[in-house]
Design a protein around this nucleic acid. Structure first.
Lengths: 137, 137
DNA sequence: GTGTTGACTTAGACAGAGTCCAAGTTAGGA
DNA sequence: TCCTAACTTGGACTCTGTCTAAGTCAACAC
């Protein structure tokens, strides 16, 4: 994602310090941060950045396909900078930890035409759930 | 789900009119209602039922395994009374419509041991997304 | 039937996540 | 350097969902 800023500029983005900081936060740690966590880290570098701007910027990055939105629980969405390699998520039912995983095969292929009901099915998201080593009894 | 009330009674539930109405609402329409929609329909039959009771009852039904919680967007959770037959969900990216679908194969099998990172993986939820016939261009 | 009691329900306050808006600021082209 | 549309800001607001204290009532014992 290091040339992300250039790609965005090429798409007509105005390159503000706020957007730069948000992109750097996502780029820096390949974890799954919530919007509030992104805001906290961004504020570490640019104290006056507002929550609204973080939400706006994240929404734009998602719309541009540079970042994935992950909703594994009913709580805050998380943002995954690893948008350029297909993967799924493994979530701990105990502590909520998330890992990227790479199952084999294409999950889309498992849905026969008769089960598509005329939808133009485009993607399949898989969430695996279970207890992580730290949470196992 | 018609004998749901009996099953619940057998598990020590007190059978109040509120719980009965919530169970009937879920039983009556095999759609995926939000908590607020369940509340609205329940209030049609029992006007003084409170939101808190609807949330409590839905939570209990989920804990008992009688109803599934489905979070397909970052918005309100939806409640799926079809908990006794394994299935996945197909969601319209345009209007949000949800259908139960039955892919073949077990999605869990696609995750090799090397990709489980010591987790005791228990379930795999698949969400297929695409445009429904009404939303296709 | 009546009484008792703890489980259940209620209204409303509260909290977390996210959106919206009007006013102020600024990146980048002319 | 100036201009202006695009961007940012703080704060109010909405939407979901949770919590609490006080009141109610289903089911059991008698």
């Amino acid at each position: 994602m290091s040339d992300l800023l250039e790609r965005l500029r090429g798409r007509g983005w105005r390159l503000t310090s706020q957007r730069r900081v948000v992109a750097e936060v996502l780029d820096g740690e390949h974890v799954h941060l919530t919007a509030d966590e992104v805001h906290a880290r961004a504020a570490g570098r640019l104290p006056e950045i507002s929550r609204a701007t973080v939400y706006n910027t994240l929404g734009e990055l998602v719309a541009l396909g540079e970042v994935l939105e992950v909703a594994t629980d009913g709580r805050a969405k998380r943002y995954d900078p690893n948008a350029h390699r297909a993967h799924q998520h493994l979530v701990c039912s105990g502590c909520g930890a998330i890992r990227d995983v790479h199952p084999h095969g294409d999950p889309l292929a498992a849905l026969p035409a008769a089960e598509r009901f005329g939808f133009a099915v485009a993607t399949a998201e898989v969430t695996y759930r279970g207890l992580c080593p730290d949470c196992r009894p």
